[in-house]
Simulated assay, not measured.
Amino acid sequence: MLSGARKIVSACWRPVRRYVRMNRDDSADDDHRFSDDALLWSRDLERHFLGEFSFAVVQANEVIEDHSQVETGRAATFIGVYDGHGGPEASRFIADNLFVHLMRLARDGGTMSEDLLKNAISATENGFLSLVRRTYAIKPVIAAIGSCCLVGIIWGGTLYVANLGDSRAVVGSLGHSKKIIAEQLTKEHNASVEEVRQELRSMHPDDSHIVVMKQGVWRIKGIIQVSRSIGDAYLKRPEFSLDPSFPRFHIPEPIRRPVLTAEPSLSTRVLQPNDRFLIFASDGLWEHMTNEEAVEIVYNNPRAGSAKRLINKALKEAARKGHMRYEDLKKVDKGNRRCCHDDITVAVVYLDHELLSEKIAVPELSIQGFVDTTGPSKFSILQEKI
Rank of each mutant, 00 (worst) to 15 (best):
V332K: 04
I145A: 00
V58P: 00
E52H: 14
V132K: 01
L200C: 08
K139I: 06
S42E: 12
G216Y: 08
M213Q: 14
F128K: 03
I223H: 06
M324Y: 02
Q198R: 13
P247K: 10
A318P: 04
G335K: 09
E293I: 08
L365V: 14
Y160R: 01
P258T: 07
V362M: 10
K178F: 09
C12F: 05
L174I: 08
D36P: 02
V217D: 11
K359P: 00
D206Q: 13
V226Y: 03
V141Q: 11
L235T: 04
I181P: 02
I121G: 03
L105T: 03
L150F: 09
L40W: 03
E194V: 09
L285Q: 06
S10I: 09
H250P: 03
Q368V: 10
R33T: 10
M112L: 14
E296L: 11
A90E: 04
T158I: 11
L98H: 00
Y19F: 14
V70P: 00
R74L: 11
R104Y: 10
I367L: 14
L150E: 06
A60V: 03
I224N: 02
Q184I: 12
L117K: 02
I230H: 04
S192Q: 14
F55I: 02
D232Y: 06
K139N: 14
G216E: 08
S68P: 03
D206M: 07
A361W: 02
T135V: 08
F246C: 05
S282H: 04
C340N: 05
L200F: 05
Q69H: 08
S147R: 05
S54Q: 05
S357R: 14
G231P: 05
A120T: 07
I138M: 13
V332I: 15
E199M: 13
D37K: 07
S167F: 05
F78K: 01
N336P: 01
F34V: 03
G172V: 07
F55V: 04
V141P: 00
Q59V: 09
L131A: 11
V16W: 12
T124M: 07
P88F: 01
L351D: 02
P363K: 12
W286M: 07
S68K: 04
S91Q: 07
S265P: 00
A319H: 01
A169S: 14
A262H: 13
I224T: 10
A182I: 02
F379A: 06
T135F: 03
K378G: 01
E239P: 03
F280S: 04
D36A: 11
C148W: 00
S380R: 14
I154P: 01
V70G: 00
L271N: 10
E263K: 14
L242T: 03
R21N: 13
S192P: 02
T111M: 09
K330L: 12
R134D: 15
N190L: 06
E65C: 02
I297S: 03
L45E: 15
V161I: 15
V171R: 07
I121E: 02
I367S: 01
R303S: 10
H288A: 04
I360Q: 12
R92V: 06
Y234S: 09
A162E: 01
R133M: 09
P273R: 11
V193E: 11
Q383P: 00
D333I: 01
W286L: 04
N312C: 12
A281T: 10
P205G: 09
E65R: 06
D44W: 02
M324P: 03
